[in-house]
């Protein structure tokens, strides 16, 4: 493998990993803090992509499309938490899995009704459509660089909010003792609804910003939810840091797997998960 090919793959792996992180971070937060297993998280990714596709189709602006998708998913996440998920905190995981699985069916069907079963794509905006030439045959797409930078900025922002702000402390405290957080005058129900909405918005953003890189297709959420759970399990449930390193590990492994061991690539990420779990059954960064 030449150096330039290696570099391009590292870069692609990081970019994929960062997208995975945006999705997995919401999943791990919602599970770690609120104790909710949200199978519909992948459907949020799919919906984010479709909403962005829809807006891009009619307006021609990808920026508008991404913003619209984020706003839509935040609002949808908020409503779903208030109407459905908020009733599940004291229920067992089976009830949660059933209702969030039901949501997948509803969203998949809604998607088919609104946008049909065809595969769609959206062009990269002209300003970012060229590439940075690494060698004669290798190039970094500017759009991929842009996506990577935006995702990295979001990841850092999220870490700062969780670690350094009062809001982040409330969220973390809510994971260990909800009732005490409300005893300090924090509206914990509203706080959890906002966390859920933020998770849905981040995932919707990941879906929307990926639209020019991948195609928009039915079932795209189902594939991403499985890989996102792999990331969460590898990183340690509830750990944002774990989701970050887990996502990068899986992003790189998957990218290199496709290049070096194409016949094993779909199996590789699960082999890594099995290896990590044998070594650390709680995941890499499990909370004590």
């Amino acid at each position: 493998m030449s150096l330039s090919l290696f570099l391009v793959q590292v870069f692609n792996g990081l970019q994929y990993g960062l997208i995975l992180f945006l999705i997995a971070s919401g999943l791990t937060l919602i599970f770690g803090i609120m104790g909710i297993i949200n199978l519909a998280h992948g459907a949020f990714y799919m919906l984010g992509a479709y909403v962005a596709f829809g807006i891009a189709q009619s307006s021609g602006s990808l920026v508008l499309a991404v913003l619209g998708a984020v706003a839509t998913m935040a609002a949808l996440g908020f409503v779903i938490e208030r109407v459905l998920i908020g009733r599940l905190y004291n229920r067992n995981h089976l009830d949660q899995v059933l209702i969030t699985f039901g949501l997948i069916l509803v969203f998949d069907e809604a998607q088919r009704i609104i946008w049909g079963s065809d595969v769609h794509s959206v062009a990269i905006p002209p300003a970012l459509s060229s590439s940075f030439q690494v060698s004669d045959i290798m190039a970094f797409s500017y759009y991929r660089i842009f996506v990577t930078v935006v995702c990295a900025v979001l990841a850092v922002t999220m870490a700062l909010v969780i670690q350094k702000t009062k809001l982040g402390m409330w969220i973390r405290a809510g994971a260990s003792n909800r009732e005490m957080v409300s005893s300090l005058g924090v509206d914990i129900n509203m706080l959890f609804a906002l966390v859920f909405a933020a998770g849905a918005a981040l995932t919707g953003f990941a879906g929307a910003i990926s639209v020019p890189l991948t195609s928009v297709s039915p079932g795209m959420g189902d594939a991403i939810i499985i890989i996102s759970f792999v990331v969460v399990v590898i990183g340690g449930v509830g750990s944002i840091k774990g989701a970050f390193f887990g996502a990068l590990l899986i992003g790189l492994a998957d990218t290199f797997g496709r290049v070096l061991l194409p016949q094993f690539s779909s199996f590789l990420v699960y082999a890594i998960m099995a290896g990590v779990l044998l070594w650390r059954p709680q995941g890499l960064f499990a909370r004590a």
């Binding site: 009062k166 402390m169 973390r172 405290a173 994971a175 260990s176 009732e179 300090l184 004590a288």
Partner: peptide, 19 residues
């Protein structure tokens, strides 16, 4: 509260800042 309601995953300083 009875049992004190200390958060396992927050530092002493964070307990004070958040409240």
């Amino acid at each position: 509260p009875e049992g004190r309601g200390i958060f396992a995953n927050l530092t002493v300083r964070e307990h004070l800042v958040m409240a």
